[in-house]
Design a protein around this nucleic acid. Sequence first.
DNA 1: AATTACGATATGTATGTACATAATTGTCAA
DNA 2: TTGACAATTATGTACATACATATCGTAATT
Lengths: 244, 244
Amino acid sequence: MTATAPRPPEASGPRAQTSFRTIKTEILRRIRDRIWQPGELIPGEEELAREFGCARVTVNRALRELAQIGIVERKRRAGTRIAEHPLREARLEIPVVRVEVEALGAQYRFAVLSRETLAAPEAMRARLDLSGDVRMLHLRCLHFADNRPWQFEDRWINLAAVPDIEPETFETISPNEWLVKNAPFSEMEIALSATAATTEEAELLGIAKGDPLFVFERTTWLLDQPLTHVRMLHRPDYRMVSRF
Amino acid sequence: MTATAPRPPEASGPRAQTSFRTIKTEILRRIRDRIWQPGELIPGEEELAREFGCARVTVNRALRELAQIGIVERKRRAGTRIAEHPLREARLEIPVVRVEVEALGAQYRFAVLSRETLAAPEAMRARLDLSGDVRMLHLRCLHFADNRPWQFEDRWINLAAVPDIEPETFETISPNEWLVKNAPFSEMEIALSATAATTEEAELLGIAKGDPLFVFERTTWLLDQPLTHVRMLHRPDYRMVSRF
DNA sequence: AATTACGATATGTATGTACATAATTGTCAA
DNA sequence: TTGACAATTATGTACATACATATCGTAATT
């Protein structure tokens, strides 16, 4: 005797399984239609399973996924309730520039504008919590999409933390990708803002001085050791989009 | 005979179940330690289940959740591989303006600049995938931190989806907070960009025309029904920061 | 009255099994 | 060579079941 009883042969169609997706949608519908209000306790898994004619595990998965995106809140013994404050966090994907450009169907190219090894300037030491003499690699790159300037990247790399990068010439691989592949990090800080283009920045990006630029800064650490700080400037028509 | 064979009595401890969490952690460890490189195909669920001494479903759950956060990529028949570009994702908390301002120790205040109910203009219909006659509530608000303009909010609300908001006067609660409390959503799209202040925007925010503005747009849906679209403009000195 | 212990209960998760589905690979014919 | 189609295979998901675990209410104890 097998564990699962043979499913009753459905009259027609390939199957009449109750998908956890169906349940998710139905629950969302009930929320939308105010059948279940925010804060309200909804029936238990067992009861819902009976109602939907499926196994409890299936209801469980539906509810678990709804809890994951903050629609409902669950507690053992206490049951499941519609979230009162669906306070949610947006997940912002941080793509590799090349991938981002290629995803648009454009051709990607980058150029290293300058490269120098030097002692960390005071501002960078402060930003990265570095003290004493620290050698850093300073890179300035321009990224193109179909030969149109796409992003200007100003990057500082802590050579003590990433020594392998010093001999790299970046002829085939960009610093961005080199680091993604070779320098895992455990912590990251990002800052988003807007600024006005300086004369130099405007020239590089092919826009006018004073035009608004979208600024994306990122600093990464491995444990407590700072790895790199990068400031990326985008043309005013750039939009960073994320949907979920 | 029951479906599940009695578990072999573990020598000690409460249980030696193979948790999907254990598997997730172990897989992450193997990625971190470069045992499995980005792009690499990892063993199938069956084999991993054998290795970890657990059911395939358990491995499935671990891998499914890792796929959800972008660590691995899965395709039927093709197997599971480590994501090539571990797109680290930044988690941006969706702040309620008031909370954001108060977190800085500043006093929060807001003003509704205008409020009108009207048929959705073409641009908004297009953006929200709405068709036909749709009544919308259009609100323009200014948020202050210590009486200094902090954010200009331009919001469109789909009244068909959120009818309860129509009588609300927003004298004590901002549209932002009202919606957070009363209108759960299941999908969201956010877009970040930079733009130049128009004359009116500059005046409202107390800056000069053409100054760069940080733009945060958000659209939310419940199921397929659009709820609201909001465009938030910030002064050039604003920085949206997230660390993790 | 306050504290503790305990039982009831809802969710959490592991397992074996069965079948669904997508995608690749191989096969054969045009 | 190519195109159509079938076989193969890894993942996807449903189900019955069993047990784990957190937590709430209540009863027993201090």
